[in-house]
Each structure stands twice: as structure tokens, then as C-alpha cells.
Design a binder for these strands. Structure first.
Lengths: 156, 156
DNA sequence: CGGCTATACTTGATTACGCAAGCAACCATA
DNA sequence: TATGGTTGCTTGCGTAATCAAGTATAGCCG
């Protein structure tokens, strides 16, 4: 009794939160190791390329990329530094606003993405397919969508 | 068509994965800011104190704490450095194995945890309660438990 | 006993992020 | 046009994590 600081009553929210944290960290670690070993990309690199590939003209303002990735502007500056150095994305200036610079997917970038997509997305799909039925997966995706910051999708 | 690297067919697994990543990052950021502002603790600090409070004798080997927190041994060394400096945990040697050193919750640590639990766990509960019915929350927790690294719980 | 391997932990280097501050360009209003 | 506020982006710095390498103890097997 003396050791009970928190009530022992089931606290499902706390369990859900811990599982969310732990599983995302654990999956991020393993997927990241795989992706890096196979293609020399970090997870954020891959997702940036993916966002660009789905964007109009394969180009995005850095601000919008940050929004899409759930990162800050400064993180995107450094992320793109690396991708530009690797030749996977390029810069394009904006005619109407000299402040903005577009990040543009290069042909090399598109090729790299295609090459990495197969194994990476496959690994992601496998992780879920092993554990859930189609119905359960849809339920999970729907429930997760309601959480803060989760309004993201592969389409559009 | 030229811009489609990945199939546009619904890829629920990928959506679920992105939502998991984004929501955990977003929630971690906001909860962390709150917890730090109100009690000067990082999320990992809080969770370490919580694990200790639930442990036998309020003590854990560093290895086991690492396992419970989903961190590496070196991360735990540095985490405990801070908590020891703050007087919230202490060290205890092991009689039978000179390699191991137990991290022990101090009275100050227990008090700090009690103080922080109220608002922090409250915030967590609120985040979920706002979005889910009891039934949905149970479903979410159950689904998340199946993911890699999610085998964690507040009880035992 | 002596040597091997495994385990518990620490330490140094690196990384990925956030935040705060700064700069330059844009916009609105007077 | 001047001026004040906002937006897009970069830079400096701090932090929390990682990995790789190092130290010390344990325990086993010849």
C-alpha cells in the first residue's frame, strides 16, 4: 500500500499512451535501421521524398514540407541540406515571393524513392499485416487519426 | 501518372504507421512541455519514477529500468544522473553481484512523482477521453498492445 | 587455478530534433 | 512612401537519445 502512488485501478488511457510511445519508438528504430542499411536513408529522408513525390510538380515550400512531416522549419532546413548534398532534391526559387524556396525532387531522388519504397513500405505493411486483420487495421487507422498531430495521409 | 511512385490504392498500413509516428511525436512534445513547465521533469524522468514506484522495494537494476522504458543502458545512465543529482533517486549496491547497482526511489522522488502524477496523468487521460468512448479506448489499447515494443503496462 | 565469454554499467562521439533569435522579403495601412 | 507587423527560412545552442568502445565483475570450463 505504501508503494502505491497512483491508483491501481485500471488506467487504460495511461496504458494506451505508453504503448503508443513505446511501439512508435521501437518500430521507428527497427524500420530506420533497415532503411538506412539498405538504402542509406533515414526515415525522415524517406518521408520527405515521399511527400515531394506526391506533391504538385514534385515540389513543396519548405514550410509546407515541415507541416507535412510534423517537423519544425529548422529541422527541414537541415534535412534538406542532406538530401541536396546527396542530389536527391534541388532548390527552385519562387517567382512571386523571394522569401520562399521550393524543394524539388530530382530524377535521382525519384529513382531513390522508387528503389527504397519497395522494401520500406513492404516492411511497414508486413509489420501490420502480421498482427491485424484488414478490419482491425482499418479500425486502428481510424482511431489513430483522431489523435493530435495525426492528420496525415499518403493520399493528397 | 508520371508522379505516381507508390500505388494510389489505399495503403492503410502506411497511413496507420504515419499516424502513429506523428501523433506520438506531437503528443510527446505537448505533454513534455507541460510536465517540464509545471514540475521540471522530462517525460522520461516521469516514467522512470513511475517504474520505480511500481517496482518491488521501489528499486530496479538499471538494465531492467532500461528494458521497461524502452531505452538503452547508456540512456538510463544519463537519465539517472539527472534524477540522482536532483535527489529523486538514489543508488544501492547489490550484495551478490558487484556489477549491478540498483536505482532506488527516494522519499523526495516519491513526493515529486505524486505531485506530478496528478496533472500529467490527468492531461493524458484528458487527451484520450476527449476523443474516445470507454469502449473505443479499450479497443485502441488492445490493438496497440500487439505492436512491437508495446508490451508495457502501468500494472506490474 | 587461469583464461574466456557474458553481463552490468559508463564514457565519448555523434545525431536528430526543438527553441529562440535573427534576417530578409512581403503586406497593410497611414 | 515610411513604418509596423508577419512570414519563410537559416543559424546557434541545448538536450535526449543513439552507438561503439571501454572497464569491471561473474561464472564457467579446461
Amino acid at each position: 500500500m505504501s508503494s502505491q502512488v497512483l491508483s491501481t485501478q485500471e488506467d487504460i488511457a495511461l496504458d494506451a499512451w505508453l504503448r503508443l510511445l513505446r511501439s512508435s519508438a521501437s518500430m521507428r528504430r527497427s524500420l530506420s535501421a533497415e532503411l538506412d542499411a539498405a538504402h542509406g536513408l533515414a526515415i525522415s529522408d524517406f518521408e520527405a521524398l515521399l511527400q515531394l513525390a506526391h506533391a504538385e510538380d514534385s515540389a513543396l515550400r519548405r514550410v509546407d514540407l515541415a507541416e507535412g512531416l510534423g517537423l519544425t522549419a529548422s529541422a527541414v532546413t537541415r534535412l534538406l541540406d542532406g538530401l541536396e548534398r546527396a542530389g536527391l532534391v534541388g532548390k527552385r526559387t519562387c517567382e512571386h515571393d523571394a522569401r520562399v524556396s521550393y524543394a524539388v525532387l530530382t530524377e535521382d531522388g525519384r529513382a531513390k524513392l522508387a528503389e527504397a519504397s519497395c522494401s520500406h513500405v513492404g516492411a511497414i505493411r508486413a509489420l501490420f499485416a502480421e498482427r491485424y486483420s484488414d478490419e482491425e487495421l482499418r479500425t486502428l487507422a481510424e482511431l489513430l487519426e483522431r489523435l493530435p498531430g495525426a492528420k496525415c495521409s499518403t493520399k493528397e
